[in-house]
Design a protein around this nucleic acid. Structure first.
Length: 515
RNA sequence: GGCCUGUUCGUCUAGGGGUUAGGACGCGUCCCUUUCACGGACGAAACACGGGUUCGAUUCCCGUACAGGCUACCA
């Protein structure tokens, strides 16, 4: 075991908005890097020029920054191994493909896509289990293994299109020791002759990834489980390139599954279930479709990060709320689970609720102000901190400030019918009329305590218990049957408004004296 | 189909040859409270199945089932 510095990388391809599962992969890389005192790199894998989506790279960077990941080296940051975009590294890969060919580990292939299709059809007809370009079929195709040397040379010189394929050994067991899964053994006969260099001169993922990881001195590759099947191929490449000694260690993460447990989480699920699967809002530049993000849906960064960290990993203790520093401290690859993880938005909401409550008073007040402004409410700024305090225990998102506390800003226009039916009765009306009148003539300091005192006096005079009318009084003042302390509300809206609301309620719901 | 990986309450998971199989989310009941929320108490709820190994398997091994991934000149 060497003692060299840990270097990990997150290597997304800019084909659209970064999926939340990708964010989790990045997070695990980051936690590991920080825990080990290593470096976190960001590399953009844009070798497929057909799938390039404008804005995707910027989205990736913004998303990572939002969840608190700091890139030490890479795209958008720079570093000793720049450039960190594979399209800009294009000239570097060719030499390695050539070396592979020179040493007999790769070959030129000139087959057209029609010929490839025909080959697959033929194999399918012959009932071959998995039709592929491999050690048996390659001898029937047009490549530098089957064509005469001068023919190959001629085609190359003529500028015929070709790809470079890996010549996978015939009979060999390829093994790798995955940090999460242990030994994984695959027979080389099940691996096909993957294209390494495409006809446009770009490397495929397989080549680019190995060359870059080597050049960038990556020590650990932490990536999604969808890469496990091609990991043996990568091991082969490290060997053929002579880099086995410094081959990184692999850790293949379990996938994020959709809530009903069938398949990978996708944007379709988000639509159906109404929750985000992207960190940030995304507007597709081609179709104009928009997808919602955690951030815009009101999830706090800390909550999202914490939630994501626990999707497939746990510290082995009972603690669930972790700051980024605590996550780094507690994180180990050994405690990453093996099985796929279903995405449970309820847990995300719970995390958000926890973090909302922990927000400093000033932040809470600011969020409340933003919500109020969003709804064009008028208010006394001095009262905002108190309102925020009263509301903080009942919110999951900042938008709940308005949902739960609209009546701090606006008089009710309608009244909850169920509550009215159940609680609006003669006794309530009697008390509300009396209370309204009492408040109107009240000249003392208008605060919750005194206002409560006035209510008790009214109640005493009418000989009615508080529990019998409280709901109706609340209905009159807020329009709904539930909410924070009523006396505080009366203090905040003020005497005039409180009286006005009671009058309106009386007028609307009727001063019915019977029943 | 082939190859690879996985399977503990509905969900996220702890655990590990002998446990009342623990926690959290969600759900239900109760308490607190002027209501709701918060908080508290309690409760329902799991080792996929079949064979081994063993004095004893949820735990180890092998099968089966189921699930997922991969099977492109995509990553």
């Amino acid at each position: 075991m060497s003692t060299k510095q840990v270097r990990v990388r997150f290597a997304p391809s800019p084909t659209g908005p970064l999926h939340i599962g990708g964010v989790r992969t990045a997070l695990y890389n980051y936690l590991f890097a920080r825990k080990m005192g290593g470096k976190m790199l960001l590399r953009i894998e844009d070798t497929d020029q057909n799938r390039f989506v404008p804005g995707a790279e910027a989205y990736i960077q913004e998303a990572l920054a939002w969840v608190g990941i700091v890139i030490d080296e890479g795209a958008g940051v720079g570093g000793p191994h720049a450039p960190y975009k594979q399209s800009e590294r294009k000239p570097m890969y060719r030499a390695y493909a050539d070396k592979l060919i020179a040493e007999g580990n790769a070959y030129y292939a000139f087959d057209t896509s029609e010929e490839l299709d025909a080959m697959k059809e033929r194999l399918k007809a012959a009932k071959v289990a998995s039709p592929s370009y491999n050690m048996v079929t390659r001898m029937q195709m047009n490549n530098s293994l089957t064509l005469p040397e001068d023919e190959v040379k001629k085609r190359l010189e003529r500028g015929d299109e070709y790809v470079i394929r890996l010549k996978v050994p015939r009979k060999e067991e390829i093994r790798l020791n995955d940090m999460i899964r242990g030994w994984v053994v695959v027979h080389s006969s099940t691996i096909d002759d993957k294209v390494l260099l495409k006809s446009d001169g770009m490397p495929t993922y397989h080549l680019a990834n190995i060359v870059d990881d080597h050049l960038m001195e990556i020590t650990h590759v932490i990536r999604g489980e969808e890469w496990l099947p091609s990991a043996p191929l990568h091991v082969l490449l490290y060997r053929f390139l002579g880099w086995e000694d410094t081959m990184p260690q692999f850790a293949h993460l379990p996938l994020l599954l959709k809530p009903d447990g069938n398949g990978k989480l996708s944007k379709r699920d988000a639509d159906a279930a109404g929750f985000p699967v992207f960190p940030l809002d995304w507007k597709d530049p081609a179709s104009g479709d928009t997808w919602m993000g955690f951030r815009e849906q009101g999830y706090l960064q800390e909550a999202t990060t914490n939630f994501l960290a626990f999707l497939g990993w746990n510290p082995g203790t009972q603690q669930e709320l972790f700051t980024m520093d605590e996550l780094i401290e507690a994180f180990t690859v050994e405690r990453i689970g093996k099985s796929g993880t279903k995405f449970d938005i309820n847990k995300a909401k719970w995390y958000n609720q926890q973090y909302m409550r922990q927000l400093p008073d000033a932040t809470l007040t600011q969020l409340l102000k933003e919500e109020a402004d969003k709804h064009q409410a008028t208010y006394d700024v001095a009262k905002l901190p108190l309102i925020a305090q009263m509301l903080k225990e009942r919110l999951t998102f900042a938008k709940d400030f308005w949902i739960e506390g609209q009546f701090f800003f606006e008089s009710p226009k309608t009244f909850d019918e169920k509550v009215a039916a159940a609680k609006w009765n003669a006794e309530a009306v009697t008390v509300i009329v009396a209370y309204k009148d009492a408040l109107t003539v009240y000249t003392g300091v208008f605060n919750a305590e005194n206002v409560k005192h006035v209510l008790h006096e009214v109640l005493e005079k009418a000989d009615i218990k508080i529990g019998k009318i409280m709901q109706a009084l609340r209905l009159a003042l807020t329009g709904v049957g539930a909410g924070p302390d009523l006396m505080q509300l009366i203090e905040i809206v003020g005497k005039e408004e409180a009286v006005k609301r009671m009058e309106f309620a009386l007028a609307t719901l009727g001063e019915k004296v019977n029943s």
